Simulated scan of single mutants.
Amino acid sequence: MSVSGVLYTAFRDLILPPASLLVLFALGFLIRKKFPRLSQILCVGSVSILFAISTDLGACLLGNPLENLEPPLRSAQGTGAQAIVVLTAGRVVDAPEYGGKDIPDYIGLARMRYTARLHRESSLPVLVTGGFGEQYGNDDSLAEIMASALEQDFSTPVRWKETDSVNTAQNAELSAKILLPAGVSRVLLITDAMHMHRAKLAFQQQGLQVVAAPTMFLNEYDLRWSCLVPTMGSLRRSYYAIYEWMGLILYKLSKAPQANAKIT
């Protein structure tokens, strides 16, 4: 990964929980003698927040409003869409069971499965968007990795691959440059439910009509005692939700998000 990529990733992870909360706790501990009251607030507050977002209840309270911004797509039929656009996610590097090739991560896998389903329903051509090839020291972009998996493992042909984008805004900008000249102005857009609203705004900003096709609704819950038990899965979902809230706020504040926002 490039130096800029490493610095951005480090900064992003530092300002998001749990790292940011651990920093606040450490700061509170260091000032405990000079500022005991402030120290208590920082230490107790950071631990309390970390506990809350590590529970299923906390994760759902953060993620459910994001998922409710775009309802699930009931059918690919009758939408008027001319193509399917799927956003890549991450990668598993040097997967041994695939002969040492990079493969899509579990987030990308869920998006690919839904892409295959909607393609079977509609027979619409597919565009895959996502770069990051050079940052991993190889020539395989996320789009190329996902396209290969779609074609080989899901029997879903990919017509277009956008291989240069590094964030959601660029996914939209560079995909539009491929689709609009090809006569495609209305698309089915596939990404995670928590990410969908921000992605939809970005693609609409580029002049595309978007039919939201969210997948991976993770934040439905029943109120029971287990909702208050901290788990790594809940903390991971809270991290994702906070990440998306920050990205959405940056988008709303920026008149040119594709130039300014770096949340992917």
Rank of each mutant, 00 (worst) to 15 (best):
64 N>S: 15
53 I>V: 10
136 Y>E: 02
47 V>R: 08
194 M>Q: 13
55 T>L: 06
73 L>Q: 04
4 S>H: 07
101 K>M: 06
9 T>D: 05
128 V>R: 00
89 A>Y: 09
2 S>E: 14
134 E>D: 12
134 E>M: 10
99 G>L: 07
225 W>P: 00
225 W>G: 00
149 A>L: 00
211 V>S: 03
239 Y>M: 05
62 L>G: 03
236 R>A: 14
129 T>G: 01
111 R>D: 10
234 S>P: 04
17 P>E: 01
7 L>H: 02
200 K>A: 13
94 D>F: 06
156 T>R: 03
24 L>K: 08
238 S>D: 01
171 N>V: 09
66 L>S: 08
125 P>E: 09
232 M>G: 09
178 I>G: 01
136 Y>N: 11
134 E>Y: 09
76 A>Y: 02
184 V>M: 07
3 V>L: 15
228 L>D: 04
210 V>S: 02
144 E>S: 09
111 R>Q: 13
135 Q>W: 05
159 R>E: 13
97 E>V: 10
38 L>P: 02
133 G>K: 03
114 Y>K: 11
129 T>V: 01
46 S>R: 02
235 L>P: 04
113 R>E: 15
119 H>V: 07
220 E>W: 10
208 L>R: 06
16 L>Y: 01
232 M>H: 09
22 L>V: 06
8 Y>K: 13
130 G>Y: 03
181 P>I: 03
131 G>F: 05
258 Q>A: 11
87 L>Q: 11
54 S>Y: 07
83 A>G: 05
206 Q>M: 15
19 A>M: 08
96 P>S: 09
78 G>Y: 07
148 S>D: 13
205 Q>T: 08
239 Y>S: 05
82 Q>S: 10
126 V>H: 00
176 A>N: 10
52 A>T: 12
173 E>G: 01
49 I>Y: 13
245 W>M: 10
159 R>L: 15
43 C>Q: 14
54 S>G: 08
148 S>P: 00
148 S>M: 07
104 P>D: 08
159 R>G: 04
152 Q>H: 13
189 L>S: 05
34 K>F: 06
28 G>P: 02
178 I>H: 04
150 L>P: 06
151 E>K: 11
66 L>Q: 10
117 R>Q: 14
17 P>Y: 01
175 S>Y: 03
74 R>Q: 14
132 F>N: 04
98 Y>A: 01
162 E>Q: 11
124 L>V: 06
44 V>T: 11
174 L>V: 01
259 A>P: 00
181 P>W: 08
188 L>I: 10
77 Q>H: 08
257 P>W: 05
123 S>I: 00
28 G>I: 02
27 L>N: 09
126 V>L: 04
